[in-house]
Design a protein around this nucleic acid. Structure first.
Length: 802
RNA sequence: GCCGGUGUGAUGGAAUAGGUAGACGUGCCGGACUCAAAAUCCGGUGGUAGCAAUACCGUACCGGUUCGACCCCGGUCACCGGCACCA
């Protein structure tokens, strides 16, 4: 009989679904395992070949864990709110909820087609009111704890989406989604105080097992720096506070720079002799987008304030103050002390404006370039700091500043608070009411979910307000606190809101009293293994971990970290090595592969394609190779064999043990490609030495997580008990993975010259005798003295001759 | 510019407590089966020289440590990803 993959795959998918083979149980005595993949955004295009890579990988892990006896939770859901759906709705005049429902149906059938062992009873949809009720609830809890606040601030405004974007949605000055220009615009926004958690988000990385690249990126993103704040007095009277990581260089501060937005400039309006020049610079800076400002980075601009100067607190010398847009209003105090001798940017600026450059750390030549090395220098020209190392000077000057009440130690972060409002329709309504008397008041919990009302038009208004702003009867409400007429918030939450906490919901997806029961959370969390794309390893993780830590602080979840282990997969590229994209027309549709070769072949190929963590180009030929492998397995195992299930043939015993070991270990180390290679090697061995029924049993057990349908079918044909996917994961015997006779490399002078066979664990004398008995070695050694022998048991012998 | 990663046959990629480089797959070459082709099965396949045994060269490049280096150290180049005036 032929390998009829379509029939077989449908048959077993139906069987698994009907018997609920992969349902996780909430009250179980078994050890638990929680495997998580990033839930998809249900786009109209359906599944693309990028999805199966992480999903198959974690499906393999989940299936292996079940076979190992774990109560395994492997859930799936849909991150359904989002712009593409909304844009599609606008264009086609359909309700986004209708579009979403349709897309989810498509995704569901595609995911089932690939035979994933998801627990389909736990599917969640972030756009359903039953779900977003809790997204809103979390927001209210944050508001109650002072973590959500409204602030007017310059935001990134996409001129095309008419929407405020978070910093991370702006890529190279253009909108990440539509590519249009992004400008700065002042707007009142809901913000989340993620910066309160900066230290913990950084420090707790030590407690989890995350892919190193992601860990480093997160650290850079949070950007913690240690330093000091220092007050400089000014001739205008007000003191000017700066943040510096190099307080040791205070004696070298020869000027100061403040950002164009600095608030002291308002106070100094009367005193500035060149006010119009200053204001012109401010106006020019305000017109520039963030991108343009950084584009100008090479060439420093600025204006010296006339009429106001500062005093260096240690030297007492009068130093000029500049405004320049190389100083950011949003970092530190928006002002710096400039030490051109020891900071590259200050050095450039000083050169341009012909400002004095003073050396305070010896070791470089500050007339040529800034000397920024902190490890080797010695303090000079620095009064009481002279002769100290940089580190000693930092401590001493900080103590001095603290004593003199001129400053103090300070830690700063690059991380900013999180802009949490979107002026869009297809998102969770922010459950807040604005009352003239009481200010912002949360919608009472009993009224959650605050449902998204139906609107006529999904486009933002020209003022950039959400479509909800046009819903006057929905907006008009009463203050939950005082009962006076009040207005609803019309902004919605960003995409990230729903994905912040979705892994918690899977543990108890139908709960109506809480986001999940405490019992379910205690049992299932934290997630044991979470795999997803590199693109989410920084921001989604930061937001999600922040949210989790908050829930931990208010006693909702039992652990401080949500995810124990994070791995990440590389992208699947098109056959030409380019990114797959509709515009390039090089997209591979998984449906086509499944139709032509079957889901098992697709799963196998996508895992065999290369190093899991690296990008890999698609290859149609290599897909055929995987199909060929399954054909070979089929032809080998199709006819029922006689014999015992757990008895390996003498000829294949070693190969089976080696394969069990290799596959077991490789799955844990995300080396799926070599695990599959090991299965191919085992199959090749069976073509040399006909397999026993037990040999086939082992092969099918190992193959089952990778290509589950064919494994089930052959399992049944062989008459093995139960389902292959519910079989026990096999153990191996280390001793049986080794040969009794070992092939030893024989080197002469470090170069490989021959190999010899000796019994396992032979001592040096035996191996050396065997080596010297080899004709070639004997010839090489003849007439020479063996001065040294390096012997590595079971591996190599190296004869050094003179 | 800073941070991180990668560089191995025609090709996707294996192999790191330093110990037989190229597993497995693709492609290609040859053979069997076939009227023929496909499919399948068997064999070969890093380069140079040689009929051959064999020798020499080979993991981006230059150098070092070592009996021995894809692996460790110093330097250079190229590509990929992240951040980008963060004081």
């Amino acid at each position: 009989m032929k390998y009829e993959f379509t029939r077989i795959e449908k048959k077993w998918q139906k069987n698994w679904e009907e018997t609920k083979s992969f349902a996780a149980v909430n009250d179980s005595d078994k050890p638990k395992f929680y495997a998580l993949v990033e839930f998809p955004y249900p786009s109209g295009d359906g599944l693309h070949v990028g999805h199966p890579r992480p999903y198959t990988a974690m499906d393999i892990v989940a299936r292996k864990r079940r076979m190992q006896g774990y109560n395994t939770l492997f859930p799936i859901g849909f991150d359904a709110f989002g712009l593409p759906t909304e844009n599609f709705a606008i264009k086609n005049k359909v309700h986004p909820a209708v579009v979403t429902k349709k897309n989810i149906a498509t995704f569901t059938s595609q995911l089932k087609m690939l035979g994933y062992s998801f627990d389909w009873d736990r599917v969640i949809d972030t756009s359903s009111p039953e779900y977003y009720k809790w997204t809103q609830w979390i927001f209210i809890k944050m508001f109650e704890r002072g973590l959500a606040y409204k602030a007017s601030m310059p935001v990134n405004w996409c001129t095309s989406c008419k929407c405020v974007l978070a910093n991370e949605e702006v890529v190279n000055g253009v909108c990440e989604r539509c590519g249009s220009e992004v400008v700065r615009r002042e707007k009142s926004q809901w913000m989340l105080r993620i910066t309160d958690y900066a230290d913990r988000l950084l420090d707790d990385l030590d407690d989890v097992d995350f892919i190193e690249r992601g860990r480093v990126q997160t650290k850079n993103w949070i950007g913690r720096s240690y330093g000091a704040e220092v007050d400089f007095t000014t001739t205008a009277g007000e003191s000017l506070r700066v943040f510096t990581t190099r307080p040791d260089t205070l004696f070298g501060a020869t000027y100061m720079v403040i950002s164009p937005e600095h608030e002291l400039l308002k106070a100094w309006t009367d005193k500035l002799e060149n006010l119009s020049e200053v204001q012109a610079y401010q106006a020019a800076a305000a017109r520039k987008s963030d991108f343009e400002r950084t584009e100008m980075a090479k060439d420093k601009t600025g204006v010296r304030l006339k009429g106001v100067a500062a005093l260096n607190p240690v030297t007492g010398g009068e130093i000029p103050i500049f405004i320049s847009d190389y100083v950011l209003a949003t970092y530190g105090t928006g002002a710096i002390m400039a030490v051109p001798g020891h900071d590259t940017r200050d050095w450039e600026f000083a050169k341009k404006f012909e400002l004095p450059i003073v050396e305070v750390v010896q070791g470089g030549d500050v007339t040529l370039e800034a000397f920024t090395d902190c490890d080797t220098g010695v303090m000079v020209n620095s009064g009481f700091l002279n002769g100290l190392s940089v580190d000693e000077a930092k401590v001493k000057i900080t103590e001095w500043l603290t004593e003199q009440k001129l400053g103090e130690q300070k830690v700063n972060f690059k991380l900013r608070d999180w802009v949490f409002s979107r002026q869009r329709y297809w998102g969770e309504p922010i459950p807040m009411v604005h009352c003239e008397h009481c200010g912002y008041v949360p919608v009472p919990e009993s009224e959650l979910p605050l449902r998204l009302p139906d609107v006529e038009n999904y486009e933002t208004t020209d003022e950039g307000e959400s479509p909800l702003a046009a819903m006057t009867d929905w907006i008009a409400t009463t203050c939950p606190k005082c009962g006076a007429p009040a207005k609803r918030e019309t902004d919605t939450m960003p995409n990230w809101a729903g994905s912040n906490w979705y892994y918690l919901r899977y543990t108890d997806p139908k709960n109506t009293d809480a986001l999940a029961s405490r019992d379910a959370l205690d049992y299932w969390t934290p997630v044991d293994w979470y795999n997803g794309g590199m693109e989410h390893t920084t921001l989604h993780f930061l937001y999600s971990r922040f949210c989790h830590k908050f829930l931990y602080d208010i006693g909702v979840v039992p652990t401080a970290e949500p995810y124990k282990k994070r791995t990440s997969h590389g992208m699947i590229l098109a056959e030409d090595g380019q990114k797959m994209s509709k515009s390039r027309g090089n997209v591979i549709n998984p449906n086509d592969i499944v139709d032509e070769f079957g889901a098992d072949t697709l799963r196998l190929y996508i895992m065999f394609i290369g190093d899991f963590e690296k990008a890999a180009p698609w290859s149609s030929n290599a897909v055929k190779g995987c199909k060929r492998f399954l054909d070979r397995v089929w032809n080998l195992a199709e006819k029922p064999l006689q014999g015992k299930e757990f008895e390996y043939s003498a000829a294949n015993e070693k190969a089976v043990h080696v394969a069990i070991k290799k596959v077991s270990e490789d799955i844990e180390n995300v080396k799926f490609n070599t695990a599959i290679a090991a299965l191919m090697t085992l199959t090749n061995a069976f073509y040399e030495n006909p397999p026993s029924r037990g040999d086939i049993h082992a092969l099918l057990s190992l193959l089952s997580p990778f290509a589950p349908h064919i494994a089930e079918e052959l399992w049944e044909l062989q008459g093995f008990k139960g389902l292959a996917s519910q079989a026990k994961w096999l153990d191996y015997d280390e001793r049986k993975t080794l040969d009794d006779v070992r092939e030893i490399a024989v080197q002469v002078g470090g170069k490989l010259k021959a190999t010899v066979f000796v019994p396992q664990d032979s001592e040096q004398d035996v191996t050396q005798a065997a080596a010297l008995a080899n004709d070639k070695i004997a010839r090489l050694v003849e007439g020479h003295e063996i001065v040294r022998v390096i012997y590595i048991k079971n591996k190599l012998i190296n004869l050094i001759i003179k």
